[in-house]
């Protein structure tokens, strides 16, 4: 088997030439990172979260570094769906990579309207973000309440014919239960995890660092937690998983595949190493060749006795 065949994978109805993608919110719409590498090497790009109307975002401070982790409270700042359609889709279409549109709303109706707009546009998949921890309304509410999640996925599924991915929050008692609901409501795939809810307090002022108190935690510090969530979800559902959470090396990526991911997303670690996706892809090429096994067979192998 050639290298290209070994790397091929699918997330639901979405066929990817390789499993390396980038996580929503860490990559803008690709323009900045296109200065460092050819975006065509990526299996897919999940773009910065989109809303119907432009969002101003949260007042600073928006960032706080922790040991090997990052707390963020950006608040979905984005110029709205019209801008995305007019400027960003044509930009990304210059590259040979799949476009995943990450959508956000305050209400079920907003989610439905936004997804129905984007379903008519030239994107390859829609990622329903029900797990943003950094907005006052909507956001994570839909991802942490079972009934709300069901209603959100049902509403979006009713208008989306493209590949529908639901991005889950790890801030729940049983992420497997949430994944089952997504599968029951017809989601094609599940992406996980979004950021963990966390906070920091300024010891001089004695007050929380962030205006909304809570913030989203990402980075290598969350990797073992995220990996376990992927492992658990893989056992619970049949639909494929786009796994992410603290991936910062080729080995991390392989771990996520073994735990059950059909594809992986790199995020926070790209801030210090913008070439990380290139390095991970190179690593996966040699890894699959050495193991004489394609990504599709490595996916979930930790559940089936590993490489023995």
């Amino acid at each position: 088997m050639g290298v290209n065949t070994l790397l091929r994978t699918t997330i639901g109805t979405l066929e990817l030439k390789n499993p390396v993608t980038v996580a929503s919110g860490t990559f803008g719409c690709g323009r900045e990172f296109a200065q460092f590498f050819d975006l065509s090497i990526l299996g897919a790009v999940s773009v910065k979260g989109i809303t119907l109307e432009p969002r101003k975002g949260n007042p600073p401070p928006r960032l706080h570094e922790t040991p090997m982790g990052l707390l963020n409270s950006i608040g979905l700042q984005n110029p709205g769906v019209e801008h995305f359609i007019r400027e960003e889709i044509p930009f990304l279409r210059r590259y040979d990579t799949k476009i995943i549109a990450n959508i956000n709303g305050n209400t079920i109706e907003e989610y439905r309207e936004l997804s129905s707009i984007l379903n008519r546009e030239d994107v390859d998949a829609i990622e329903l973000n029900v797990s943003c921890p950094n907005v006052k309304e909507g956001g994570m509410v839909f991802g942490t309440d079972k009934e709300m999640l069901r209603r959100a996925v049902r509403a979006v599924r009713s208008v989306v014919t493209k590949c529908l991915i639901v991005k889950l929050s790890p801030n729940v008692t049983s992420i497997a239960d949430m994944a089952r609901i997504c599968q029951e409501e017809g989601a094609d795939a599940i992406s996980l995890v979004n950021t963990f809810s966390g906070m920091a307090i300024d010891v001089q002022s004695g007050r929380p660092v962030f205006h909304l108190v809570g913030a989203g935690m990402s980075g290598p510090a969350i990797k073992p937690l995220a990996l376990k969530k992927v492992y658990d979800v893989y056992q619970a559902v049949e639909v494929p998983i786009l796994g992410m959470g603290g991936i910062s090396s080729g080995d991390d990526a392989v771990e996520f595949l073994l735990a059950g991911s059909s594809a992986i997303a790199v995020g926070t670690a790209m801030f210090s190493n913008p070439l990380l996706p290139v390095e991970i892809l190179r690593y996966l090429k040699s890894f699959t060749r050495a193991k004489k096994m394609g990504v599709e067979h490595i996916t979930g192998l930790a559940h089936r006795g590993g490489f023995s």
Partner: peptide, 15 residues
């Protein structure tokens, strides 16, 4: 301002 990506992708350093 504190920065994460430094290149305009993460929108963390807002003014």
């Amino acid at each position: 301002e504190k920065m994460a990506c430094g290149i305009g992708a993460c929108i963390g350093c807002a003014v």
